[in-house]
């Protein structure tokens, strides 16, 4: 990996970790496990638009590992990985299909996929089918927050200076 690329991706990883930290300092929006804005997703979506799936996956993995070490416990690593990877692939495919237009829609698909993955992971951990009744709450929540983060990523792509490597 070239030094410039390492530096730029490292900066993005730091940025997404900072956003994640700021968001977890806020009080929860609603008392539902797994319900949050997912602002750090803006960085993932931005990297997906500008660079490649590989680069976005790398930064996402670094962010999830570091955030689990710094703020969470071992289980939250499992939830985040499952949700994060599923959402990454969903956004990659949607972004390709839409040729990077309509970033809000890409974000919404990502939010939907994230909450699906996270709830599936929670189902595996608790092995209680009843937990699946969170789906009707978490799916629209993921779509709504995803629309917002997608919109943010679109604006960020337009206004943030681009670093080539």
């Amino acid at each position: 990996m070239r030094v410039k690329k390492l530096t730029v991706l490292g900066l993005y990883a730091a940025l997404s970790l900072a956003i994640y930290a700021a968001e977890s300092a806020l009080p929860p929006l609603a008392p539902i496990p797994g319900f949050k804005l997912g602002l750090a997703n803006i960085v993932t979506l931005l990297l997906l638009r500008r660079y490649s799936l590989k680069d976005a996956a790398l930064v996402l993995a670094v962010r999830i590992l570091l955030s689990a070490l710094l703020f969470g416990h071992l289980l939250s690593l499992f939830y985040s990985l499952s949700g994060g990877l599923l959402s990454l692939f969903a956004m990659f495919l949607t972004g390709k299909l839409l040729r990077n237009r309509f970033s809000a829609l890409t974000g919404a698909m990502g939010g939907l996929a994230h909450n699906t993955g996270q709830l599936a992971a929670a189902f595996v951990v608790t092995s209680t089918p009843g937990i699946l009744s969170y789906f009707p709450l978490l799916l629209p929540a993921g779509i709504l927050t995803g629309l917002f983060t997608g919109l943010c990523a679109g604006f960020a792509d337009r206004f943030l200076p681009r670093q080539e490597f």
Partner: peptide
Amino acid sequence: SVPVTCLPNR
């Protein structure tokens, strides 16, 4: 409609 869940304590 909605269960109460504590994921850390499963």
